[in-house]
Write a protein that binds this DNA or RNA. Structure first.
Lengths: 154, 154
DNA sequence: CCCTACCTTAGACAGTGTCTAAGTCAACAG
DNA sequence: CTGTTGACTTAGACACTGTCTAAGGTAGGG
């Protein structure tokens, strides 16, 4: 992923400071940030960067296939820099954490032609949902908090 | 589904006119409406129904498991009344149409314990994406329209 | 070093969903 | 049937996420 900038240059992107910091943030921890989180982290490196630029850059990265958009909860989309290796997601219902998992079989095989209703199927998104170890421990200790998803991370 | 009202009564729900029309709308075509579409259709039957009530009622129906929430595109959530029969979704990237499909194997089996990272996995959402027959035909006839997803149905 | 097309910015705007205070009414008791 | 009560509904303000525009800035080629 460290050659993302090189790939962008090959696509004739103008390498502005803003695009560099967005790429740098995506290149950091392999976490799946929301656009707002990416903006906050980018702003820590380049305070004057605007929200619109982050959205623009993310949209362009998605369009050229360097980054994947993941919408797991109907709230903010998350951006997944791991676009070059097929994978699926494991999502915590409580804190929203996402982990990548790698499929052992091609999930497209699970859909027989008879069930495709004439659709041209090109992709499959598989999302496993449950509780991450931390949240499972917390809900066992305090069952009342079970159904109160924390918006912010602990 | 026609006994949804009976099931709600069994749960000690107060059966107001508003809840009846929401149930009635969900009971209609097996389409997956957004909350706003449900509100519009409910308002056709009961003009003074408010948006908040539709959201409240849908939220309660989801909480008790009578209806499923589906978020396919990061925009409005859609509500799926077919909650009593495990199924997956086939989504058209162009027009947004959703069809239910029925899995031949338990998709949870695709995730070996070694890949669960300590998560307590309770559900799996599988979404197949591609083009519906109509949109595939249209994009074959006019490739330029291929990447311009229509927000409204044709 | 200059130019120009592309990029960024601030802020307004739009869509979706949540919350609150006040009024209303379904269900039950008598 | 009528009264009571607490759950339900309402309008509208609010919050969050994402998009758009006009104006100014700047990367990269000459």
């Amino acid at each position: 992923m460290s050659d993302l900038l090189a790939r962008l240059r090959a696509r004739r992107w103008r390498l502005t400071a803003q695009r560099r910091v967005v790429a740098q943030v995506l290149d950091g921890d392999h976490v799946h940030f929301t656009a707002d989180e990416i903006h906050a982290r980018a702003a820590a490196l380049l305070p004057e960067i605007s929200r619109a630029t982050v959205y623009n850059t993310l949209g362009e990265l998605v369009a050229i296939g360097e980054v994947l958009e993941v919408s797991t909860d109907g709230r903010a989309k998350r951006y997944d820099p791991n676009a070059h290796h097929a994978h699926q997601h494991l999502v915590c219902d409580s804190c929203g954490t996402i982990r990548d998992v790698h499929p052992s079989v091609d999930p497209l095989a699970g859909l027989p032609a008879a069930e495709r209703y004439g659709f041209t199927v090109s992709r499959v998104a598989v999302t496993y949902r449950g509780l991450c170890p931390d949240c499972a421990a917390r809900s066992a200790a305090d069952p009342a908090a079970d159904s109160a998803p924390a918006r912010a991370k602990a």
